[in-house]
């Protein structure tokens, strides 16, 4: 008899394997050409064949993504604290932020190339600008939603604004911050791969673009799968961090990972 807990643990793996099986069977049955949709086995073969190149380029992508993400965390927290703590800053800056966030980031890459040239920097900057916004919004929300009674209690103790911010605001914003990190890290991958595709000689984005220009479609798909795997891994790291830092916000539920 398999326990419910066991099933819950197996589910993600089962579904993932299931998708690959369906994909493989579909390719076999329809006999679709490899340069249209390669079967998982063909993708795997390409992955093994080009393993050194994939490793090199995926490390580059991992580096640009992580660098952009770390910048976004630092910048997003600072700006989020400013916006959440001051109504003045909030009113002034929020519309500009929303406007900026509405710009498709791929449109920024050519500008970044003019400023920084082709290569690592545009990828880092794109990862940064794309993952910055959810962090700012979440931190600001956490700060802005302090219970008025709690604020009153502290003000009547003679607490300064800074004290209220550090004793209540920031700890209270932590679950919001960590929730946003999970979104931000996956967005950061989108940003860096976009920039590499348009303007780089390195990274998974570049690898996929050059593979597709030589009709090596299995390698393109291999790149996609690698990006996906890196995204899941980084998400898991962020989620584990979240649980460690803000366990109090989950109150013992098992499903929130």
């Amino acid at each position: 008899m398999i326990s419910e807990k066991m099933i819950l643990r197996i589910m993600p793996w089962a579904v993932t394997v299931g998708i690959f099986v369906v994909w493989e069977v579909a390719c076999l049955v329809t006999g679709v050409a490899e340069f249209v949709l390669p079967a998982p086995t063909a993708v795997w073969a390409a992955t093994v064949k080009f393993a050194p190149q994939i490793l090199h380029h995926s490390l580059q992508t991992l580096f640009t993504t992580t660098a952009g993400f770390v910048l976004a965390v630092v910048g997003g927290m600072l700006l989020g604290v400013f916006i959440g703590a001051s109504k003045l800053v909030y009113t002034g800056l929020y519309p500009v932020l929303v406007g900026f966030n509405s710009i498709p980031k791929v449109a920024l890459v050519p500008v970044l190339v003019i400023w920084f040239g082709i290569g690592t920097v545009p990828a880092i900057v794109t990862a940064f600008v794309i993952s910055f916004f959810p962090i700012v919004v979440n931190v600001a929300t956490g700060l802005a939603t302090i219970e008025p009674e709690l604020r009153d209690v502290l003000r009547c103790l003679g607490a300064t604004r800074t004290e209220i911010l550090f004793k209540i605001g920031i700890p209270r914003a932590m679950p919001y911050l960590f929730a946003s990190l999970k979104i931000a890290i996956t967005l950061a991958f989108v940003g860096s791969v976009i920039a590499e595709t348009v303007a780089s000689n390195e990274g998974i984005g570049y690898l996929m673009l050059s593979a597709s220009s030589s009709y090596n479609v299995p390698l393109v798909f291999s790149g996609l799968v690698v990006v996906g795997i890196m995204g899941v891994l980084m998400y898991a790291v962020a989620a584990a961090f979240e649980r460690r830092m803000t366990g109090w916000a989950f109150r013992g539920s098992d499903l929130m990972t």
């Binding site: 009547c156 003679g158 209540i168 109090w248």
Partner: peptide, 29 residues
């Protein structure tokens, strides 16, 4: 300054233990 207040909704800080919650005013006053 230094007035004690208690509301209907207990407004304890969920990331602090009971002891640390009770000691909060000592960090401010």
């Amino acid at each position: 300054q230094g007035v004690g207040m208690a509301f209907q909704n207990s407004t304890l800080l969920p990331w602090r233990s009971t002891l640390d919650n009770v000691m909060l005013p000592l960090e401010i006053v």
